[in-house]
Deep mutational scan, measured.
Amino acid sequence: MLSDEDFKAVFGMTRSAFANLPLWKQQNLKKEKGLF
């Protein structure tokens, strides 16, 4: 599990902003970052 700081560094957004994205968009971002 990423820390909040690492999460923001990897995804360029906060966890709450990420959580507001549609599920497909979350999955695409995870795949792009190799976290899926």
Rank of each mutant, 00 (worst) to 15 (best):
residue 14 T to Q: 03
residue 31 K to E: 12
residue 14 T to F: 02
residue 3 S to W: 04
residue 19 A to N: 13
residue 19 A to E: 15
residue 13 M to I: 07
residue 21 L to D: 02
residue 7 F to P: 00
residue 35 L to W: 15
residue 3 S to H: 04
residue 13 M to L: 05
residue 3 S to N: 10
residue 2 L to Y: 08
residue 8 K to H: 12
residue 19 A to S: 10
residue 1 M to Q: 12
residue 2 L to W: 10
residue 7 F to T: 01
residue 22 P to W: 02
residue 19 A to P: 01
residue 10 V to Q: 08
residue 13 M to P: 00
residue 32 E to F: 07
residue 15 R to D: 03
residue 26 Q to E: 00
residue 33 K to S: 10
residue 24 W to Q: 05
residue 5 E to S: 08
residue 35 L to Q: 13
residue 34 G to D: 08
residue 21 L to T: 01
residue 13 M to D: 02
residue 32 E to D: 09
residue 19 A to H: 12
residue 29 L to N: 01
residue 9 A to Y: 11
residue 28 N to T: 12
residue 36 F to I: 13
residue 24 W to E: 10
residue 7 F to I: 02
residue 22 P to N: 02
residue 7 F to H: 01
residue 1 M to Y: 14
residue 6 D to K: 09
residue 35 L to T: 08
residue 35 L to F: 14
residue 6 D to H: 09
residue 33 K to V: 11
residue 21 L to I: 02
residue 10 V to P: 00
residue 20 N to L: 14
residue 19 A to G: 10
residue 25 K to E: 15
residue 3 S to K: 06
residue 26 Q to A: 02
residue 31 K to N: 09
residue 32 E to T: 10
residue 36 F to E: 13
residue 10 V to S: 05
residue 2 L to P: 05
residue 16 S to W: 11
residue 33 K to Q: 07
residue 1 M to L: 13
residue 14 T to P: 05
residue 16 S to I: 12
residue 14 T to R: 01
residue 33 K to P: 04
residue 27 Q to N: 14
residue 12 G to P: 00
residue 5 E to A: 10
residue 35 L to D: 10
residue 5 E to I: 07
residue 9 A to I: 14
residue 13 M to F: 06
residue 13 M to W: 03
residue 9 A to V: 12
residue 5 E to H: 07
residue 12 G to L: 03
residue 1 M to R: 10
residue 17 A to E: 15
residue 28 N to S: 14
residue 9 A to D: 11
residue 35 L to G: 10
residue 11 F to K: 00
residue 3 S to R: 05
residue 12 G to Y: 01
residue 20 N to T: 11
residue 3 S to V: 04
residue 19 A to K: 10
residue 25 K to S: 07
residue 7 F to E: 00
residue 15 R to W: 04
residue 18 F to A: 01
residue 2 L to M: 13
residue 11 F to Y: 11
residue 15 R to C: 05
residue 24 W to R: 04
residue 27 Q to G: 06
residue 34 G to N: 10
residue 21 L to A: 02
residue 5 E to M: 08
residue 25 K to D: 09
residue 4 D to V: 04
residue 6 D to P: 02
residue 23 L to Y: 13
residue 26 Q to R: 05
residue 16 S to L: 12
residue 24 W to A: 06
residue 12 G to H: 04
residue 35 L to E: 09
residue 30 K to A: 14
residue 1 M to N: 12
residue 29 L to D: 01
residue 11 F to G: 00
residue 8 K to R: 10
residue 19 A to I: 09
residue 34 G to Q: 08
residue 33 K to G: 05
residue 7 F to D: 00
residue 11 F to M: 09
residue 33 K to W: 04
residue 7 F to M: 02
residue 15 R to K: 15
residue 7 F to Y: 05
residue 30 K to D: 05
residue 28 N to C: 13
residue 32 E to A: 12
residue 7 F to G: 00
residue 9 A to P: 02
residue 7 F to R: 00
residue 4 D to L: 03
residue 14 T to Y: 03
residue 14 T to W: 02
residue 22 P to T: 03
residue 8 K to Q: 12
residue 4 D to Q: 04
residue 17 A to V: 09
residue 1 M to H: 13
residue 27 Q to E: 15
residue 13 M to A: 01
residue 11 F to V: 04
residue 22 P to L: 02
residue 32 E to N: 08
residue 7 F to N: 00
residue 3 S to G: 05
residue 21 L to S: 02
residue 8 K to E: 15
residue 9 A to G: 08
residue 32 E to H: 08
residue 13 M to T: 03
residue 12 G to F: 01
residue 5 E to N: 09
residue 19 A to D: 14
residue 12 G to S: 03
residue 13 M to C: 05
residue 16 S to E: 15
residue 36 F to A: 12
residue 32 E to G: 07
residue 7 F to K: 00
residue 20 N to S: 14
residue 21 L to F: 03
residue 31 K to R: 11
residue 26 Q to F: 01
residue 17 A to N: 06
residue 33 K to H: 11
residue 18 F to P: 00
residue 10 V to F: 12
residue 21 L to E: 03
residue 17 A to C: 12
residue 26 Q to G: 01
residue 14 T to L: 04
residue 25 K to F: 11
residue 34 G to R: 09
residue 4 D to A: 05
residue 12 G to A: 03
residue 19 A to F: 13
residue 16 S to D: 14
residue 30 K to N: 09
residue 20 N to C: 10
residue 16 S to M: 12
residue 4 D to T: 03
residue 21 L to Y: 04
residue 2 L to N: 05
residue 9 A to K: 15
residue 16 S to R: 11
residue 13 M to G: 01
residue 2 L to K: 04
residue 20 N to A: 14
residue 21 L to R: 00
residue 7 F to S: 00
residue 30 K to T: 12
residue 35 L to I: 12
residue 18 F to W: 05
residue 18 F to R: 00
residue 29 L to R: 02
residue 20 N to K: 15
residue 6 D to V: 07
residue 30 K to Y: 15
residue 31 K to Q: 11
residue 11 F to L: 04
residue 5 E to G: 06
residue 32 E to P: 03
residue 23 L to S: 09
residue 27 Q to M: 11
residue 18 F to K: 00
residue 8 K to S: 07
residue 16 S to G: 11
residue 10 V to K: 11
residue 29 L to M: 09
residue 17 A to Y: 05
residue 31 K to L: 09
residue 24 W to Y: 08
residue 12 G to D: 05
residue 23 L to I: 11
residue 21 L to V: 01
residue 15 R to I: 06
residue 10 V to D: 03
residue 36 F to W: 13
residue 2 L to G: 05
residue 23 L to H: 10
residue 15 R to T: 04
